[in-house]
Design a protein around this nucleic acid. Sequence first.
DNA 1: AGTTGAATCCGAAACGTTTCGGATTTATAA
DNA 2: TTATAAATCCGAAACGTTTCGGATTCAACT
Lengths: 332, 332
Amino acid sequence: MAATIKDIAQKTGLGLATISSYLNGGSVREKNRLKIEAAIAELDFAVNEMARGLKTNRSKNIGVIIPELDNTFCARIISEVTDNLRTHGYATMICDCRTDEKREADVIEFLLQRRVDGIIIMPTEKTGKLLKQVLAAGKPVVVIDRRLEHIPCAQVLVDNQGAAYDAVLRFIQSGHKNIGMIGGPTDIYTAQERYKGYQKALAKYKYSFDKKYFACGDYTITGGARAMKELLQNNADLDAVFVANYEMTVGAMIELNEQEIKIPEQLSLIGFDNLEFAKASNPSLSVVIQPLKEIAEEVSRILLSYLEHAGEQTCETVILPTYLKEGRSIRK
Amino acid sequence: MAATIKDIAQKTGLGLATISSYLNGGSVREKNRLKIEAAIAELDFAVNEMARGLKTNRSKNIGVIIPELDNTFCARIISEVTDNLRTHGYATMICDCRTDEKREADVIEFLLQRRVDGIIIMPTEKTGKLLKQVLAAGKPVVVIDRRLEHIPCAQVLVDNQGAAYDAVLRFIQSGHKNIGMIGGPTDIYTAQERYKGYQKALAKYKYSFDKKYFACGDYTITGGARAMKELLQNNADLDAVFVANYEMTVGAMIELNEQEIKIPEQLSLIGFDNLEFAKASNPSLSVVIQPLKEIAEEVSRILLSYLEHAGEQTCETVILPTYLKEGRSIRK
DNA sequence: AGTTGAATCCGAAACGTTTCGGATTTATAA
DNA sequence: TTATAAATCCGAAACGTTTCGGATTCAACT
């Protein structure tokens, strides 16, 4: 059925090794190159990646593990990464582990058995112990979004502290007094960092920190709405709120809408992620934007370089800056 | 490094064929089974899927092609499908083609070269011509969400007409007079069907259809907001609006919020998808819910059955019902 | 033309499975 | 105990590549 390298050899009168060389970027004489290309086109030949993989011991597959596929941040990064890797001949196997450590362990097992050449992961499990066996098998790992201490692998993060710091600074500079924050689960790295940034900015400008201005959400729409309600209830003098992820931003907006609180007249707001939502909102929202494309590029770049130079893992940590996209949700 | 079947044979004193038989569910004598299992555990053996694939000519990989990964409908279905297939030993290769036919053609090419065993697709290209080569190669195809005429493959859809019909019916029965709709791109199957359902319900109850009550969005947040604005501008007497997908529902809500239009007092609304958003909204939204889990299950079931019984593609079309989840966004 | 070094070409062996037909063992019945 | 049928076991060959060391060809000099 499908043509093989032998068919090409036969048709061109050349040897197996020559065809193989051609297929792998080796040099062949011009006239032979033409013959080979003609034969490939005619027989509709395509390399059998399984045979190649068997021989080279590389599957050209990359495992991708994320905590939630239905999440704009994850989805967009993954989409870009998949594209980047595909253009370099790698396929991705994406596994949504639903923020469940058991599932995460299962998919790592699965991917390892599938003999992926490397793994990209936004880890759910905090210590990174699951990744040890991957690294032990000599396969490169790139961690995104969440820091893993003590695990010797590359990590691509954003400056979460800086993101929150900038947002709060922006509030302070435009004269806000009582600045609240809706943060994420306290056990998640990004949530911790964003919280730190919030506190740091307040401290820097000699604002007293009062924990009644901080509400802890859970990175979901519902949680964001609940947190906003709590904040409003406890603080009649609330001036401004920084919301620390996209889903909670949606929830916060819904709650403000219900309570008929005007933005920015009664309350200034800075949200997170999803430029499209920020722009469509009314008034348009000021939001912290994470450089999704750059994250994806760094991840792909690092992984590909590890794959090409096996064994040379530099364990670099890349921290990318976020930026504040201005809308009209901040009072002058 | 990694143990092979030969190592197991050696360690147990059995033959290659016996080990292979065991691995593939054949029967071996009890005492041998124990020996094999012990050896597998001790040597940490796992079948080399590439070698197996080379021999059996099946990759145990399924290609999944979607128009947009950052879309709650796609993401949730894909996540479920991936899970289902994984538990049956298949890995998925997900490709986001960004609603771009060129990209779609590219990824089909890529997946075919990767010798996937089958393809699941929410097609962007309307005629399905890209799938012909896949079917010609004898690989099963399952289409989701959008109907492809004249392409002999399985299709899993929801009753889009019925969904819209039910929504409008709900408005009519609670006494609404001027019922608007925000629909999707006219060239997309689901949008067409939902539009038909809207018209059908109006006709059935002798409501006159006036196209000024219909606004065409583009399935995005921004488009939904724009369409809602248009509807409000052109129809002072607007009573109720049915929005035909999730992203546009968000946009519509944002616009209503800006114009300070009260739901359901001034306007009744029925949205689409994403129960979490509907519940978090204030008032909670009534929405059309698509049975994501069932869709995923049907898709997996059909594909797996085709894979097991090669060549017996029944080209069944499954149409699943939607249901209306009641919130508080409809005036009594 | 003859020499030489570089460029190109070549086929056999190997990667880790499955499968085939036949050989061996076990269980059953006479 | 022996004959027979059924169950289990076996190794060689094959799947489609890459790779190795050596053979051949080519181009550029004497």
